[in-house]
Computed example of a mutant assay.
Amino acid sequence: MNFSSWPSLLVVDVEGNGTNPPDLVEVAALPVRDGRPDTSTAGAWLTRPKNPVTPFAARVHGLTNKRLEHEPGWEEIADTVHTLLGGSWICAHNAHVDYKVLSAHLPRWQPAGVLDTLRLAKATYSGLPKYGLDALIEHVRLDLSAAPAQRHRATFDAYAAALLLIEMAGHYDTWDRLVAAAVPPGLPGAPQAAEEPTLW
């Protein structure tokens, strides 16, 4: 894979407060450049949700209401997040979830396309019993010694998904083939079906 052919791309991850629909409590956006995660230009934000974090969500990611009480509200950071994301491609594990939540919080934002490492893993490593992020980290034997924070924090999960994407990209010889395997139908960037010829 020639990484220099890739468009601007950020691996994203979001953590929520456990409600449905969720309020955001953490967002991470990690650029991938030249086949490597670029932590020097990454963005990571904690945000105080409008509704309290549920006990279950706090147990998963460790972000309690007390931890978040002095963080900025979403309206204070939304423009900054939007600016970093811009019109780049994004990638996430089970990406329709992150895309849906970010789109709800950033109604004017539209990525160029959405890669899903879950969908890509099913195409790349067929026959695995599980395709969750933990299972894939173990299968690929990712070196996460430099990952920030810990599992289920947005910065850690974005870093892990970025390494997973880079590893799987080696199985595809062009960006277009990667896109064909990784973009879920109906999300931005999905290859368009060829139009049927008509008599007109």
Rank of each mutant, 00 (worst) to 15 (best):
N2W: 00
F3V: 08
S5G: 03
S5D: 15
S5A: 15
W6Q: 07
W6H: 08
P7W: 03
V11F: 06
E15W: 04
G16K: 04
N17M: 09
P21Y: 05
V25A: 10
D34E: 13
G35R: 06
R36D: 07
D38E: 13
S40D: 14
R48H: 13
P49M: 05
P52E: 11
V53D: 04
F56H: 05
R59S: 13
H61P: 15
G62I: 10
E69G: 03
H70A: 10
E75I: 01
E75A: 15
D79Q: 12
V81R: 04
G86E: 10
G87V: 02
H96N: 13
V97D: 06
D98F: 02
L102K: 04
S103M: 09
Q110H: 13
L115S: 10
T117C: 07
R119P: 00
K122V: 11
A123W: 00
G127M: 09
L128H: 04
L128E: 12
Y131E: 11
Y131Q: 08
D134I: 05
I137P: 00
E138I: 06
H139Q: 14
D143V: 04
F156T: 01
A158Y: 00
Y159T: 03
A161R: 00
A161D: 07
D176M: 03
L178K: 07
V179P: 01
V183G: 10
V183T: 11
G186Q: 06
P188T: 13
P188Q: 13
G189C: 04
G189F: 08
G189V: 04
A190C: 12
A193L: 15
E195G: 12
P197K: 03
L199N: 09
W200M: 12
